[in-house]
Amino acid sequence: MSDPTSSPSSRVQSWRTWLLTEFPASPAQARLGRVYVIWLRFSANRLALTGLGVLIALLLVAAFADVLAPHSAVQGDLMNARLLPPGSPGYLLGTDGQGRDILSRLLQGSRLTLLVVALVAVTAAPIGLLVGTVAGYAGGWLDAVLMRVTDIFLAFPKLVLAMALVAALGPGIENAILAIAIVSWPPYARVARAETMTVRGSDYIAAVRLMGASPGRIVVRHIMPLCLSSLIVRVTLDMAGIILTAAGLGFLGLGAQPPLPEWGAMIATGRRFILDQWWVAAMPGIAILIVSLGFNLLGDGLRDALDPKEADS
């Protein structure tokens, strides 16, 4: 056994050994070890790390948008600074039709993007998880009812249903988020139900049931945790879709309203200038591309890392 007070490199080595041990001494050690293994597999994937980098950059930009933005995102200089090309003094990415700095608007707009993604994730994913696990575990008529409701939602194209909801609720960023959350949960319910079906009949569930656990306890404590990893992957992969749907609603004038610097709405206003001032539409387009790509790469990497089947190999 090595000396715990020896050189730093050997201390790292000992942490590694402790985390990767085949015989964990406590549940906490086992759990941490598991996370470490996932991280090792995740970090071996360069593209996944790029995706994570994009997400971290987005978080940082959103957090420090006020400091980073050189100009106001909503107050422009219509008279003197309209439609300046990228690289103009003071306006790195050019200005839009109202004389507003596109860079500042993109930076501030990252908050809206993040807000949409985060709110949809924290509302749609738990709803889908709950519906899916309950349906899968209960079976019978409850399963039939819940799954038919899910089917009805899945029968519509996502964007079309979201548009209908926003049209009914009235345009605005809050309603857009609500609409996207409402159309986003059914796939999660499907995934959760499928996972539940596979573990429902397993021995340890039967053991818990024999010990007198209520169905609620079984679903929440013993089934949901098992569904989480596939759900996380699915949500991460969907992030790009959510961003695109939000941008699509913004583009159609149903999402964020002026003067909010929502990226989709920015493209919509830039469309008018596309022949002569390409940058007005292209800059937010590039931003959406980078962020959606980042989320996709991250989701891909997470799937590879979290997939229990690959864990054995």
Binding site: Q75, L78, G97, P259
Partner: peptide
């Protein structure tokens, strides 16, 4: 809409 946005500012 452009004028409305300018007035908004």
């Amino acid at each position: 809409t452009g004028i409305a946005e300018s007035i908004q500012q």
